[in-house]
Computed example of a mutant assay.
Amino acid sequence: MKRTQIVLLALLGLTLLAVQTGCAHFAREQLYAPPVGPIAVPEWTGPEPERVAVTTEDGLELAGLYWAPGNGSADIILVLHGRRDNAGRMAGYVQRLAESGRGVLVASYRGFNDNPGSPTEAGLVADARAFYRFARARGNDVYVFGHSLGGAVAIQLAAREELAGIVTLATFSDLGEAAPFYSELLIPDSWESIVALSRVEEPILFIHGADDDYVEPSHSRRLFRTTCSLAALAIIEGVRHRPNFRLIQPLITGWVDALRTGTTDTLVAPNAVDLDRKPACTR
């Protein structure tokens, strides 16, 4: 092969690599669609949270919102929001949890709002681990609640850290439901929650809205069937994809209380059209 041909092939390869890299960046932007600007401040119905910052292992400083435990409680619920969402809006939803005296820490991700960096699967998991370390240093037990994409992050976190329990809402079992149709082909992020569940031993409550037409309830059903952990599944009438904490907050706090008292077999789910439970299985 002539030297000119070798040079041309090398240039072609570099061009294709650049195009692929650019497409991957674009696809990631479409997948995560991170909101920009400072964290929005919702209307607080009770005490305002403290603005806190954590530092990831790769040196990024991320902003969060934190209610310290009260009423003698030492537990903290780490909250992971979904795509196209932000820590401020999620804090507005979950402030009901803080009103019961529980500690609540609302995380944010790299590339979201004014945070540095760009979102990737590995990056979001690293971000969750940084907030987990913050919570672990301040509470005895850390529970995690994740909405949509945040539920996938929660499962990945549980595969790496020791949690007291997990709650997911409207979480997908594969990337295809959350990504635009082309993103699966262009980006390396996979969010294989089914695979990660094989490394999760923490008890899990899967919540899904019966009226969710964005991520169908079949995804939570599949996650529930797959896990070998102590688990419960609640399909709630009147809930769509967006968190409806008026309906799901009693279920979340009920699950945490049931885990502490060992009474998950008596868990009650108001407005549930389907409630299923299963014990942990032998791995």
Rank of each mutant, 00 (worst) to 15 (best):
C281A: 15
S198R: 15
A170N: 05
T266V: 12
F181A: 15
R240Q: 05
S198T: 09
P250Y: 09
A210Q: 10
G209A: 00
E192W: 14
P270F: 04
L185I: 02
Q156P: 00
A164R: 03
R225G: 09
L157R: 04
I235F: 00
E201I: 06
T171Y: 03
A196I: 01
P203M: 05
S220M: 12
L267Q: 07
F172L: 08
V215R: 05
A269W: 09
A272G: 03
A158E: 04
P270S: 06
E216M: 10
E162V: 03
L186H: 13
R260V: 07
L233S: 01
S193Q: 15
V273H: 06
L230K: 10
A170F: 04
E216R: 07
D212E: 06
H208L: 06
I187T: 08
N244W: 03
D257T: 09
D265L: 08
A231W: 14
H219C: 10
I194R: 15
I252K: 03
I155M: 12
E216S: 11
A154M: 08
P250G: 13
A272R: 07
P279W: 14
G238Q: 01
T226P: 00
P180S: 14
N271P: 00
I252G: 02
L205M: 11
I187M: 15
E201F: 09
H219T: 14
L163I: 03
G209Y: 00
L233C: 01
R246I: 07
D211V: 00
L233I: 04
L169K: 00
T261C: 12
S190W: 15
I155E: 11
I155H: 11
H241L: 07
A231D: 14
L230W: 08
V195A: 15
I155P: 00
V256N: 02
E177K: 12
L233M: 02
A231C: 11
L157C: 07
A170G: 14
R221Q: 12
G209R: 00
L230V: 12
P180E: 13
A269P: 03
S190I: 15
E161H: 00
D213I: 01
Q249F: 02
E184T: 10
I204W: 02
T171A: 12
I194V: 15
Q249D: 06
